[in-house]
Each structure stands twice: as C-alpha cells, then as structure tokens.
C-alpha cells in the first residue's frame, strides 16, 4: 500500500539521508520555494533523492520530473500527483 502523502518533512529527511546537508543552509527554514541548487544539491544529489523517493513511496519518477522540479514545492507536488491515483484506485 503506497503512502498517501509526500511531505516537506519526508523530503528533508530523504535529502539528509541520501545526499547530506550543506552547513551553510538551514533545511528547517522556509525552503519551499528555494531552488535545490541554492540549497546545495546538484544533479547527482537529485538523482539519488529521486531514487530514494521512488523506493520509499513506490512511484516512478520520469527523468523530466526531477530536472523540471527545481524547488521542494514543485517536487512535492509532482510526487503527490503520482500518489493520489494510487490511493483512489
């Protein structure tokens, strides 16, 4: 049974576990609309993050989803869009 919602806390936990955190960035601050790049995460970090989201939430993310979702808000929305049909179905 897939989890029903992917939250900002889930994302922060997965970022920390998979790619670590930049000491110069406060992930617990208001980061919803901050670019991942400004948060210190390059494309490989996002690849690892996407892979961990897929594993834990049993979704499949297109390559485009990861490259186009440049902020936590956009990525959370994209992941949740994949989770809703599973819950309904």
């Amino acid at each position: 049974m897939p989890a029903h919602e992917f939250t900002l806390d889930d994302l922060k936990r997965i970022l920390r576990e998979g790619a670590g955190a930049d000491e110069g960035v406060d992930l617990d601050g208001d980061i919803t609309d901050t670019d991942f790049e400004s948060l210190g995460y390059e494309s490989l970090a996002m690849l690892e993050t996407g892979s961990r989201i897929e594993r834990e939430f049993r979704v499949t993310l297109d390559d485009d989803t990861l490259t186009e979702a440049r902020t936590p808000r956009a990525l959370i929305e994209a992941v949740n869009a994949l989770l809703v049909p599973a819950e309904v179905g």
């Binding site: 920390r16 790619a19 670590g20 955190a21 930049d22 000491e23 210190g40 970090a45 690892e48």
Partner: peptide, 8 residues
C-alpha cells in the same frame, strides 16, 4: 568534512 561530502 562538510555534511554534503559524507554520503558520497
């Protein structure tokens, strides 16, 4: 070392 370097 910084936290970003440890997992990699």
């Amino acid at each position: 070392l910084p936290g970003r370097l440890l997992p990699q």
